[in-house]
């Protein structure tokens, strides 16, 4: 860089420098040590005076932070996290409402069934007078189910491009859940395999660490057929085998998608 290594260097070089250049300088720049930047900026002719310096700094940090936030939030893995959480919300809400529908419909029809299946049947019927409200609620259950299915399709379609090896190893939905629990693809890739093994079993893990419970054998990876399909007494070793499998979850997460420097948050 030039004489100055402050964020305002482009302004010192050209006082008409574009905001975009300053945004890039704030986002990508660095310095080993801070300096009295306001004085330096005035001294180097980047700005008229201290007030002008802070005005420009406010504008530039607002724009840089807004851009960085948008980029990080639009990153594929955060989209995936929202999708999988929304899918779970839709499913849970559909189940809750289906229970409500069953309870309500039971007061109108002693033959009423229960569950989402029943809500679907009810939604398909022409409501008798006095039943319109409960049938309309049943329709909501069906819509929520459809929404959850749509979200699952999105996850299944997106996972293979975001984390291909993890999608293949864990399946797209479980893989997305692991990313969601870890808070992101990069943080999942950095977790030791023992942590991945118990992701989703935090309550049990903390109870164990406090000394009043056995250690959890597995967290969310219980959903994997290789773990769930194993008799309970062997599930601990199945979970350990899965997390240590080759390619291990850790290695498998380090795919081109997450090692590509351009896709990395700064």
């Amino acid at each position: 860089m030039t004489e100055s290594s402050g964020w305002f260097a482009p302004l010192a070089a050209d006082s008409d420098a574009d905001d975009d250049v300053l945004v890039a300088a704030i986002r990508d720049g660095s310095a080993d040590e801070p300096d009295s930047w306001p004085d330096r900026a005035v001294g180097e002719g980047a700005v008229e005076d201290e007030d002008a310096y802070y005005d420009r700094l406010h504008r530039a940090t607002m724009a840089a932070t807004r851009a960085a936030v948008t980029e990080r939030e639009r990153a594929d893995d955060s989209q995936l996290i929202h999708a999988i959480r929304a899918m779970d919300d839709c499913q849970r809400t559909a189940n809750e409402l289906a229970e409500r529908v069953a309870e309500w419909a039971g007061t109108l029809d002693p033959e009423a069934g229960s569950g989402i299946e029943y809500a679907r049947d009810l939604a398909a019927t022409e409501p008798e007078p006095g039943e319109t409200a409960v049938v309309s609620l049943a329709e909501q259950v069906v819509d929520l189910e459809a929404e959850a299915d749509g979200l699952r399709a999105y996850v299944e379609q997106t996972m293979p491009t975001v984390a291909p090896n993890l999608a293949a190893l864990a399946g797209p939905v479980l893989g997305a859940r692991l990313i969601s629990l870890a808070g992101g693809l990069e943080s999942l890739a950095k977790k030791p395999s023992g942590t991945v093994q118990v992701l989703g079993a935090e309550d049990a893990l903390f109870a164990h660490l406090r000394g009043h419970a056995p250690s959890p054998k597995h967290g969310i990876i219980y959903m994997h057929d290789g773990v769930r399909g194993t008799p309970p007494e062997n599930r601990g070793s199945a979970a350990r085998a899965w997390r240590g499998s080759s390619p291990s979850p850790r290695a498998s997460i380090t795919t081109p998608a997450s090692t590509d420097p351009t896709s990395r948050p700064n």
Partner: peptide, 9 residues
């Protein structure tokens, strides 16, 4: 060091 070029000393 990722913000020392912005935050003053």
């Amino acid at each position: 060091n990722t913000y020392a070029h912005v935050v003053e000393s």
